[in-house]
Design a protein around this nucleic acid. Sequence first.
DNA 1: AAATAGTTTCAATAATATTTGGAAGTACAT
DNA 2: ATGTACTTCCAAATATTATTGAAACTATTT
Lengths: 166, 166
Amino acid sequence: MELPEAKEKFIQAWGAFGSQWGINRSMAQVHALLLISPGPLSTEDVMDQLNISRGNANMNLRALIDWHLVDRILKTGERREYFQAEKDVWKVATHITRERKKRELEPMVRFLGELKQTSGNTAEVKAFKQMAADLHDLTGRIDAVLERSTRSDVQWFLKAASTLLR
Amino acid sequence: MELPEAKEKFIQAWGAFGSQWGINRSMAQVHALLLISPGPLSTEDVMDQLNISRGNANMNLRALIDWHLVDRILKTGERREYFQAEKDVWKVATHITRERKKRELEPMVRFLGELKQTSGNTAEVKAFKQMAADLHDLTGRIDAVLERSTRSDVQWFLKAASTLLR
DNA sequence: AAATAGTTTCAATAATATTTGGAAGTACAT
DNA sequence: ATGTACTTCCAAATATTATTGAAACTATTT
């Protein structure tokens, strides 16, 4: 396969994959484009290559910066901002994991904890509280595993080990 | 908190959580309702409790069966079908993980593998192939971890161990 | 074999999420 | 301080996705 086709397919696939996981398609596509671009791109480059509006490009670039997946680059003597993706896929995975953990998983764990206090003793209440407790336990464990596996020291260790074992 | 309020909040929260992760809100809500119901429910029960249409209830119940999260129950002497959620949250997590792995992650791993064959030697092609290779490696490792951690024997072992360690 | 009770399908509709494009804002240069 | 080059915001338009509801279908009962 030649580059232009591969590039296009990759951007489409990354966008579709993202939207299956609740990440907006454009944000994933902008990320894909930056991931495979050797150098930093300007907002206009992104607009042109993905055929999206300035507002859309800008909004998603900011969101990606917010997720720590993209850095703002200022070239000396140029006013325009450039954007560059974090290329280390381990870091990418870590940042995505930590953000979603913080924004979505942790609030769910807290909420399930609260539900365990529901009052009553009927069969229905018991089934409810049991489920809340089980889910609280499960999500808490998942949270703990993700916490450990995305700690920067563990990251460093895992990456080094897996390079050696390659 | 009293049951009706807790129930309502749980269904809403599970629905919102699901839709953040690319699972349709109604499907997650039907699942939530069945998870906290002590016995099996009929399509009508689901329709009434969630205020959704028959088509919607039916479609999502079938989808949940497809995901191995819900079983069809036939009561003797009754024509109507009943539905009951798998209550073991470890199994729930396993089934969700395995389905998404199969439907979404595995195709992505294969696709990234293909992209590594892109032809060319420019800086742009090299950056592209490097990223494809790195992502292929990363997604492949994640796939392997999920494969191992959702094997039914491992499930059994983990569940037993974590009960002992509680 | 007709009536009944239930399930499934799917085109139309509604709800939700995304995208646009222009106006407002900001900061640098002249 | 005005013009210029750019960024950000946001209400309106569009696209996408989910939901409805009624008709078609299937299985059971009389």
